[in-house]
Structure formats: structure tokens, C-alpha cells
Design a protein around this nucleic acid. Sequence first.
DNA 1: ACTGAATAAAAATTCAAG
DNA 2: CTTGAATTTTTATTCAGT
Lengths: 67, 67
Amino acid sequence: MTRRQRERAVLELIQSQPIKNQQHLVSELLSRGLEVTQATVSRDIKRLGLVKVPQPDGSYRYASPQG
Amino acid sequence: MTRRQRERAVLELIQSQPIKNQQHLVSELLSRGLEVTQATVSRDIKRLGLVKVPQPDGSYRYASPQG
DNA sequence: ACTGAATAAAAATTCAAG
DNA sequence: CTTGAATTTTTATTCAGT
């Protein structure tokens, strides 16, 4: 598994469902067979420029800055 | 000092200079005479919907989602 | 260069109080 | 309802290893 493939998966995941923290992202990736830890996900998020956006309902959700 | 006034100051600050974490925001507010702690700033950020954006240079900066 | 485990640092929430 | 102190939770980084 390459880093690029994982990063694509991360992008797909955050837009297909509300990911509220990095641990959830790790869980989803693991359930898709991608072995990854929080440290790596944090780096992926940084490289991808993703942000954790406060939602109107009081929760948080990771998203791409432009939408 | 009302919450609204402080929130306006927060918005002005994040767009006038690169605020990289909440402690810096607290420092800037304190230097402007606004007494505030990290807990409160965290709540302000949440209410305002601000995000911490990874920058190309590897740093982070708080910003408003739409820009 | 990329990663995970451990750690440090930062941020969110709880809880008590004004 | 708003806040700060303390705490918990989350995230970023360090450091060692590959």
C-alpha cells in the first residue's frame, strides 16, 4: 500500500461520512484493510491540508478547506 | 467585555496575522487587554466555525473556512 | 522517505462557580 | 448563560527503525 493510495482513501472517507476525529479515520481505514496509526493519519491530514470543522450541531468534522 | 466583542477581536486577529495555536491567540488577546483563557478561546473558535489549516510551509494557521 | 510507539503539545470538555 | 481551572481527549512531533 502506498501513501498516495491511503491519502486517496482518506479523502474519499471524509467526504462520504462525517469523520469527527483521527481515531475514527484510523478505524475506518483499518476496516478497509489499510493498516495505519494515528500518527500517520495526522501526517496525511497535514499533507492534504484537511481541517477539522466545527459543525452547527456542536460536533466536529474533518473536511477539505475548499469544500 | 462581552463575548461578541471578544469574538470580533478573534476574527480580526486571525486574519491580520498567522495565529498558529490557541495559546498564541490567548496571548494576543491578553496583550489587547482582553482577559481570556484557552478554554474560552476554544469555545469561541467553535462558535465561529474557525479551523486550523495546515500551511504549505509545514506550519498551521487558524482561519475562517470560507477564507 | 515512510511509519509506529511513545511522548509532547494542543485543543475540547467537565465541573464548579459567578 | 458564560467563564476558568482542571482534566480528558485529541493531535502533532520526536525518535528509533526499516
